[in-house]
Amino acid sequence: MKLIVAEHTGGKLTKATLEMVAAAQNAGGEGPVTLLVLGQGVAGVANEAAQYAEQVLVGDSAALAAYNPEVWAAAAAQIAQEGEASLVMIGGSRSGREYAPRVAVKLDAPYLEDATSLSVNGTTVQAQRYTYLARVTETVEASAPTVIVTVKPGSFAPAAPAAAAGEQYDVELELPAARTQVTGRSVEKTSRVALTEADVIVTGGRGVGSPDNFATYVEGLADRIGAGVGATRAVVDAGWRPYAEQVGQTGKTVQPKAYIALGVSGAVQHLSGMGKSKFIVAINKDAEAPIFKVADYGIVGDVNQIVPALIEAAKK
């Protein structure tokens, strides 16, 4: 089987999970596409999963109430082994990329990290991935009975529901106790469309000037055109914006249809997170700013003057 560990939040599968389903369906290779749903009280998620996968395996228990890398790795490895999975697909999220290597070591299997394409030919799995701060695209390959892959969000078009619902099975898992204690949590919620799911993103950099300006210009424009809001690391480090909005090497990787950068210089670490956007728009007062080199459309000007005019014009 091709085993996909489902990611879900708020009782729903993430878009990244549906992208993995599509990747598995189109990769070639043998065996049913199987979603593994882990958590507590996940019957709803399992039902949703059955609309997309031929088989759904459900691990529903108190031990799975909260994510922990060692627990998730044990669950995924056990099911992969029992089901003789040829492919184990895990989300290319922060959490996915932290437990996937543990699964690979447990199964003594090769690990292809952060794949943007995937093809299976017999026991050989080939994938592409971005390296050198996303400036290079490498093709990597591994041959083994089981190969572990993490899939970069936004790289595949999400799967559509299948005509017939898949079968659901409960699974018994032998799980280790979590050794890491979570002593506090700060969740960064936004009422806007999630960054990795947005078609249009408006991002503000230090050039926006202040937290107040960020609210007026960046959020103002985003709300006017129904876009998600992003930020550069400089702005996050300055405490203007939450980390959840950071785009770049150490933030999120996004690939929207349009990425509108306001007062962003275009450092390589930032470009590595948004450089694959379909259209890039830059507004910056410095005509030499590196962001213009990757921009399709740009305005050389002051965000304080241009953005109010844009918000006004967008009303029409």
């Binding site: 090769p110 292809l112 290079v136 695209t137 490498e138 990597v140 507004i283 213009f292 990757v294």
Partner: peptide
């Protein structure tokens, strides 16, 4: 894991810059 290819894929950008 074998690296079988590496290439620099750049999307051609229009670089249409408007004076503000």
């Amino acid at each position: 894991v074998r690296v079988v290819n590496a290439e620099i894929q750049t999307r051609a950008r229009m670089n249409r810059v408007i004076d503000g």
